Simulated scan of single mutants.
Amino acid sequence: MQRNQIIHGEAAQELMKMADGSVDLVVTDPPYLVNYKDRTGRSLLNDDNAAGVLPVFEPLARVLKNNAYCISFCGWSALPSFTAAWENAGLQIVSQIVWKKKYASRTGYTQYRHETAYVLAKGNPAKPARPIADVQDWVYSGNKRHPTEKAVEVISPLIRCFSNPGDTVLDPFSGSGSTSVAAVLNDREFIGIELEKAHCETARARVAGAQAFKTRQNGVAREVAA
C-alpha cells in the first residue's frame, strides 16, 4: 500500500490490503464506545458499535512490525472490551499516559479532567531512549474540525518518543488527521484510514498544508546552509 495518504474506507478492510509488518508505529484515537455527542449534537460513526471498532486491532497488530509500539487512546467505561481486544491481537499494555486538563469535559460521579492513552507493545520493543513523562499537560484543539479532535501538540511527543525519522506511522481511526499531520511535521511517513468522507477530506487538506509548510521550512534551511 502506498504511504503518505489518507484512505477513505473501513479500517479493518483497508488493513487487510496492507503487508505484514509494514508500519513502525500506530498512534490512534478510536471511538470510545460511549455513544458520544458534543454540545452541538455531533457524534462519531461506530461509537455505539463495538463490532465496528474492536476487530480493527487484530489486523492492526498484523501490519505493525514485530517489537514495535501502538499508542491507543481509550476511555475508562469500555476499557475491559478494549483490553480484551488488545490481548487477543497480541498487544500487551506496557504503560499508560495521562493528560491533565484545566477544565472538566464532563461531570458525573466526578469531574472528568483527563484523557488517557495506553502504550501497547507487540513483542518486546526496545524502551525509548528518551521516555516521556506519563503525565502530560493537555492541549485543547477546540474540536472545530472533529468532535474529538486531538491537538497535534498532544500527538507529536508520542511520535518522537516511540518512532524514528523516516518511520511509517499508521492511524486507522484518522478523524481529522492529527496523527498524520504530526507525522509529517516530525519527518515521518504516514498512513491514515477514515470512515467518514468529510473527515477524510479534512485530513487530506490538513496534511497538504503540513507538507507545504515542511517544504518551505526545508527550503529555508537549505538557503541558510548555502
Score class of each variant (00 low, 15 high):
residue 1 M to N: 00
residue 2 Q to G: 08
residue 3 R to S: 15
residue 4 N to P: 10
residue 6 I to H: 05
residue 7 I to T: 07
residue 7 I to H: 03
residue 11 A to N: 05
residue 14 E to G: 06
residue 15 L to M: 08
residue 15 L to T: 01
residue 18 M to W: 07
residue 20 D to K: 07
residue 23 V to I: 11
residue 25 L to V: 08
residue 25 L to G: 02
residue 26 V to F: 06
residue 26 V to K: 03
residue 26 V to A: 01
residue 26 V to G: 02
residue 27 V to G: 01
residue 28 T to W: 09
residue 30 P to Q: 03
residue 31 P to C: 00
residue 32 Y to E: 05
residue 33 L to C: 05
residue 35 N to K: 05
residue 37 K to T: 12
residue 38 D to C: 00
residue 38 D to H: 03
residue 39 R to G: 15
residue 39 R to D: 15
residue 41 G to S: 08
residue 41 G to V: 04
residue 44 L to D: 07
residue 44 L to V: 10
residue 44 L to M: 13
residue 47 D to K: 01
residue 50 A to V: 14
residue 50 A to N: 09
residue 52 G to Q: 08
residue 52 G to V: 09
residue 52 G to T: 07
residue 53 V to L: 07
residue 53 V to Q: 10
residue 55 P to K: 02
residue 55 P to T: 12
residue 56 V to E: 07
residue 60 L to I: 12
residue 62 R to E: 11
residue 64 L to H: 02
residue 65 K to T: 10
residue 66 N to D: 15
residue 67 N to W: 05
residue 67 N to D: 15
residue 68 A to P: 12
residue 69 Y to Q: 10
residue 69 Y to G: 13
residue 70 C to M: 12
residue 74 C to S: 14
residue 75 G to T: 06
residue 81 S to I: 00
residue 82 F to G: 11
residue 84 A to D: 14
residue 84 A to E: 14
residue 88 N to I: 13
residue 92 Q to M: 13
residue 93 I to N: 13
residue 95 S to P: 10
residue 97 I to M: 01
residue 99 W to Q: 10
residue 100 K to L: 11
residue 101 K to Y: 06
residue 101 K to W: 04
residue 104 A to E: 13
residue 104 A to I: 07
residue 106 R to H: 04
residue 108 G to M: 00
residue 110 T to E: 11
residue 111 Q to M: 12
residue 112 Y to F: 09
residue 112 Y to E: 15
residue 116 T to W: 08
residue 119 V to C: 02
residue 119 V to R: 02
residue 119 V to H: 02
residue 122 K to L: 06
residue 126 A to F: 04
residue 127 K to D: 09
residue 128 P to V: 06
residue 138 W to K: 05
residue 139 V to A: 13
residue 143 N to C: 02
residue 144 K to S: 15
residue 145 R to Y: 05
residue 145 R to V: 03
residue 147 P to W: 04
residue 147 P to S: 12
residue 147 P to D: 14
residue 149 E to P: 06
residue 150 K to C: 08
residue 151 A to S: 15
residue 152 V to D: 00
residue 154 V to K: 00
residue 156 S to E: 15
residue 156 S to T: 13
residue 158 L to Q: 08
residue 158 L to M: 15
residue 159 I to E: 05
residue 159 I to Q: 02
residue 161 C to H: 04
residue 168 T to G: 05
residue 168 T to H: 05
residue 169 V to M: 08
residue 169 V to R: 01
residue 170 L to K: 07
residue 171 D to P: 08
residue 173 F to N: 01
residue 174 S to C: 13
residue 175 G to H: 00
residue 178 S to L: 03
residue 180 S to F: 01
residue 180 S to W: 09
residue 181 V to I: 08
residue 182 A to P: 01
residue 183 A to Q: 00
residue 183 A to P: 06
residue 184 V to R: 00
residue 187 D to P: 00
residue 188 R to D: 14
residue 189 E to K: 09
residue 197 K to E: 14
residue 198 A to T: 12
residue 201 E to C: 01
residue 202 T to E: 10
residue 203 A to L: 04
residue 205 A to L: 03
residue 206 R to K: 06
residue 206 R to T: 00
residue 208 A to V: 02
residue 209 G to I: 14
residue 212 A to W: 04
residue 215 T to A: 14
residue 218 N to L: 10
residue 220 V to H: 03
residue 220 V to I: 11
residue 221 A to D: 13
residue 222 R to Q: 15
residue 222 R to T: 13
residue 226 A to H: 05
residue 226 A to P: 00
